[in-house]
């Protein structure tokens, strides 16, 4: 499989999360091709809501930064891992900034899914994903549920499935790498 890790960690100096993700990357590479985007090292600007990607240059974002590389890699992947320390009860603003830009991969037209309006697919298939989180000092089960539910909504809009929401303090890297065989 081609697995792409979208790492939203924001600290510049090495820390527990960066060590964990580096180890996960190494474990996954034993059986898969792994792309690891450390978003903090990339130039990713905020979506401006201009809708150029929907009605001026369909499928192409007007902002010229490192997102084109991410778009291409995501669409060539079999599986994505959204990885982030929890910050103020949600994934990092850096990961969210990147995620906002993914609307480029959708079509503006509206369809009904489960009786709700959603955007139509632009591409035939979108990779499923897993969520990997590191708790912050005050994270509780409700926080994890809220994040997981919001990413389930994201999956619904991106015509894919959230396969897992795992925590760095509960799931070790070998376990995650092993479980990717069943995805």
């Amino acid at each position: 499989m081609i697995i792409t890790i979208l790492n939203g960690e924001m600290q510049l100096e090495p820390n527990n999360f960066s060590v964990y993700i580096t180890d996960l990357d190494r474990q996954l590479q034993k059986d898969h091709t792994v792309n690891h985007f450390q978003l903090k090292e990339m130039n990713i600007r905020h979506c401006t809501g201009c809708w150029s990607c929907w009605w001026k240059t369909p499928g192409i974002c007007a902002i010229k930064d490192d997102m084109d590389e991410i778009f291409a890699t995501i669409m060539a992947s079999d599986f994505l891992i959204f990885a982030s320390p929890i910050m103020r009860g949600f994934t990092s603003s850096l990961l969210k900034r990147m995620t906002d830009r993914l609307v480029t991969l959708l079509h503006p037209y509206i369809i009904l899914t489960n009786g709700e309006c959603h955007h139509r697919k632009r591409y035939q298939r979108y990779p499923d994903f897993g969520l990997l989180l590191e708790k912050e000092h005050d994270s509780d089960d409700e926080d994890i549920e809220i994040i997981k539910d919001i990413y389930d909504r994201f999956a619904l809009n991106f015509h894919c499935t959230q396969k897992f929401a795992w925590l760095t303090d509960r799931n070790n890297t070998k376990e995650i790498a092993y479980d990717t065989h069943d995805i």
């Binding site: 103020r88 949600f90 969210k96 995620t99 906002d100 993914l102 609307v103 809009n157």
Partner: peptide, 19 residues
């Protein structure tokens, strides 16, 4: 704020992180 990919836009989240 407008709903962006099922949540707040990244720039709003950034503001929240600093509150």
């Amino acid at each position: 704020f407008p709903l962006y990919t099922d949540c707040m836009p990244g720039m709003v989240k950034e503001f929240f992180e600093h509150l």
